[in-house]
Design a protein around this nucleic acid. Structure first.
Lengths: 336, 336
DNA sequence: CTGAAAGCGCTTACAG
DNA sequence: CTGAAAGCGCTTACAG
């Protein structure tokens, strides 16, 4: 790398002190227009860019946040990431991307690494950590924003939740309206009750009860939150509960896998098995048949998480209530 | 945030100088086992973690690299990102994720921002920048690794390319073997000849010539590199060239969109229109019908880019030849 | 085997 | 409106 141009070089060249240069790059304090302009000209000419590292050391701000997801290869989290970045960009924030692969131990390790990085804050989605572990971490580092799960309030932890119950109710009511009574559920792996998988599954169970539909564990099968996982869970369900005429999936990827499973066992979608997804990822419209799904604005979700984090960074110690991302409604396409 | 524990605190607590603490955390220089152990105990007890920022300022290493993609919402780039991260993890490297949305101006701005960040190196995929702009940037900052495009060799620029020609030849030969002679191409947006879109399109054209098949612009339509883009390009092609019996797509997402288009115009896949994708993203197997596609190991691609970058970081000034990621072959499923 | 000094490139009070 | 001094938390030579 070439010899770095520092604030000292600019100062010498412009015939001012380093603080003056600092003032013009930060647009802070009173400056005579003349010197300001002169310094700016020198900066442009020399191609000077202040070192973020040096700046971070004194300001204790890194303009960097950690964004932790199970896996960025899942389009849902990728779309979330875009929202996070867009919200951060205006403030000059950069994003450290981290994947946990759903492993709680890995997740905890990552959090500590990020804290030492250091970052100004962390957005943690679909955490698999127990509430106690999260709180212990928050005691040593904050702000921390949790996306998609909803533990008890705790200082230093911001929460952004999804209206899972409302979404699931929409899905089940819609299917019931179409005459379905045996509606199964493709669930994610089993987790503690405040984690996102569980939250959505609870939504399904509540919805079945609210619609006075028979329900219980026998119409639920678990799988990874991928198309492959949905395929396998659906295959098991067809075996165990052939009476099912409709399936609601934890997410669109699993729903796409379920379509695949129907194809394989010779069930026509939607006539012999209706399928409803959740999230409405970009790909949902391109499934075959196109997916009927509950729409959640992923970009907005990411955007709100980042905005909350930024507010927490700007107002240390202040408490913010949990934010809720509304369901945008049911998008009716061809699968159900 | 709590009061930071610094090397000074540890030194005082352990009754040694700061340099000694520095030596034990970096495992560098001679230390008596006794002091080493004592200092380590204090570090553990106090929960000390060295500040990366401070360390970066003196070492001029940030253990951070920039990873620039058109959009992480495309699963191909997301899978690449996993490979990059996995290669970096062992060395303690973190990844700054950046999206350009295919905009060259945005891309250039991002590169400069990353350089000022600063990062130890940058991986740039599917760059839309002209060779001159890339070289001018490399003059001020390196190492830089380019993925998927292949400009002339240039100091400070590492290159990792994909065997587009071989892949396209496989696809076309396979289709020809199935009796197809009218094989269309779903291309990405038009770009300069060294950019990835163009490279793959050239591969298709060469393959058609090599197979002595009729070809030319009339069997090519462009679209965005998304399922939606593939859908639209395919619709145009069905209109303009109904004689086509097979379609090769720039990537799997576009191929999935093409299946959608077939569905819409009532063409059976693969009987009335065979479709072959490229990359074999995770989702390809879950398309309906499952996608026949050219397999490229995305994880390996990402991994190799990061490894090359790491080698360049470790050996400044040294020149490395372009790496080539081989095609893993044709994966025959149901769409073609 | 261990320590004192200087410095990385900035910003933050404090003067004037 | 502008500058001199100190400091952020480390590491890098240099001594001894």
């Amino acid at each position: 790398m070439k010899q770095r141009i520092t604030i000292r070089d600019v100062a010498r060249e412009a015939g001012v002190s380093r603080q003056t240069v600092s003032r013009v790059i930060n647009d802070k304090g009173e400056l005579s227009p003349a010197t300001k302009e002169r310094v700016q000209a020198v900066i442009r000419r020399m191609g000077y860019r202040p070192s973020r590292t040096a700046r971070s050391l004194t300001t204790r701000r890194t303009l960097t946040v950690g964004f932790v997801v199970p896996t960025i290869a899942n389009p849902f989290f990728a779309e979330l990431a875009r929202g996070v970045q867009d919200a951060g960009r205006a403030r000059g924030y950069h994003i450290f991307l981290c994947n946990t692969d759903w492993d709680p131990a890995e997740e905890l390790e990552l959090l500590h690494t990020l804290a030492a990085q250091p970052v100004d804050g962390i957005i943690l989605t679909s955490s698999r950590l127990e509430d106690e572990a999260l709180q212990a971490f928050a005691d040593t580092f904050h702000p921390l924003v949790l996306g998609g799960r909803l533990p008890a309030e705790y200082p230093g932890i911001g929460r952004v939740e999804v209206e899972n119950d409302a979404g699931m109710l929409m899905a089940v009511e819609y299917l019931q309206g179409k005459g379905h009574t045996a509606i199964g559920y493709l669930a994610g792996p089993e987790t503690a009750p405040t984690m996102s998988n569980a939250l959505r599954e609870i939504g399904y169970r509540k919805a079945m009860v609210a619609c006075a539909l028979p329900n219980g564990d026998r119409w639920i099968r678990r799988g990874n939150l991928t198309a492959e996982g949905g395929y396998q869970a659906a295959m098991q369900l067809f075996q165990a509960a052939p009476e099912l005429t409709a399936l609601v999936a934890h997410n669109d990827l699993m729903a796409i896998g379920a379509i695949q499973a129907c194809q394989e066992v010779g069930r026509q979608v939607p006539d012999e098995c209706a399928i409803v997804g959740f999230n409405d990822i970009d790909l949902a419209a391109m499934a075959n048949p196109p997916l009927t799904t509950i729409r959640l604005d992923r970009h907005r979700f990411g955007y709100e998480m980042m905005n909350l984090l930024l507010e927490m960074i700007d107002n240390p110690g202040k408490h913010f209530p949990a934010k809720t991302i509304p369901i945008d409604g049911l998008v009716i396409r061809k699968s159900g």
